[in-house]
Simulated assay, not measured.
Amino acid sequence: MLTSPEHAGRGSGDSEVNASARYIYTRFAEAGLETYYQSFRFRQGLGKLGYGHNVVATLPCNVQVCEKSLVISAHYDHLGSRGSRYYPGANDNASGVVVMLDIAKRLVSHQRHRKIIFVATDAEEKGLYGAHFFAATLNPQQVALNINLDMLAVNRKNRLYVLASKQASTFTQAIEPAFDNQIRALVYTSAAHMARRLDTPRIDWLRASDHYAFHKVGIPFAYFGIGTDPYHHTHKDQFDKVDLPKLAQVSEHINAFISALSVSAAP
């Protein structure tokens, strides 16, 4: 759905809420989450204002004693269209959005000792504007961790790379047990070390996606992604390039990690 012609590459900047935001809103609401749009403005080009629309959904803590919240983010915007062609953005970042929706649906029926806030951000491609706007509305003292999902369609290496702030070490210890030998998660606390491992000297992984906005306001983060993709920001980032069974496994593993941090044992 998100990569279809009807969604036209999920470009950002219009004053009206687009089809992609409406679709995500509906999916959250149908799952039973309290959901709302968060609209904002940002500068694009010379003096021109653009408009963005985050979709925010919340699962409340539902036990007597609650711990700090989790914020799970995934940007839904992509490059839009150029002339008669559009950029599908299957891996970047429809993959992260559908995993986030899947995790939200799974967690609805559980006992949760944290509030879990899901945010599908807009205008990430223009400069992380949606994430910066949303992060500025949070009280960092009330948020334990941001989990940012961006490009999760694993390739033949069957690996996810996780960049985590050092302040998140208490939480990231739960990542490895949540994964298995089929799909591995390699955790880094240094963006430079991650860049050397991926042979991407020109990429600053700290600033590469929405987790940077949370880092800027003092919230620990863990960013999940596959690293580089040969189809990134091309017309070939299409639905048929995504291995859906592997993406389902990724969702299972990340859900297990989030559950370890937030889900209470049954009484």
Rank of each mutant, 00 (worst) to 15 (best):
A144D: 13
A144M: 11
L145N: 04
L145E: 07
L145K: 01
L145I: 10
L145S: 05
L145W: 01
L145A: 01
L145H: 02
L145R: 07
N146Y: 14
N146R: 04
I147C: 10
I147Q: 07
I147D: 07
N148K: 03
N148T: 00
L149S: 09
L149K: 05
L149Y: 00
D150V: 07
D150T: 06
M151R: 09
M151Q: 09
M151C: 09
L152E: 00
L152T: 06
L152V: 06
L152N: 00
A153M: 09
A153H: 03
A153C: 00
A153V: 05
A153R: 04
A153Y: 07
V154H: 00
V154Y: 11
V154G: 02
N155W: 12
R156S: 15
R156M: 14
R156P: 03
R156E: 15
K157S: 14
K157H: 09
K157N: 14
N158A: 08
N158G: 09
N158E: 10
N158I: 00
N158S: 12
N158P: 02
N158M: 10
R159V: 05
R159D: 08
L160D: 03
L160G: 01
L160I: 06
L160K: 02
Y161D: 05
Y161W: 04
Y161S: 10
Y161R: 09
V162S: 03
V162I: 13
L163H: 08
L163Y: 03
L163N: 11
L163F: 11
L163M: 14
L163T: 07
A164F: 06
A164C: 05
A164H: 01
S165E: 13
S165G: 05
S165T: 12
S165I: 06
S165R: 03
K166Y: 11
K166A: 12
Q167M: 06
Q167E: 14
A168F: 10
A168W: 07
A168V: 08
S169V: 10
T170Y: 13
T170S: 15
T170K: 11
T170C: 13
T170G: 13
T170A: 15
T170M: 10
F171M: 09
F171S: 06
F171W: 09
T172P: 04
T172V: 08
T172M: 04
T172R: 05
T172Q: 03
Q173K: 15
Q173F: 04
Q173R: 15
Q173V: 15
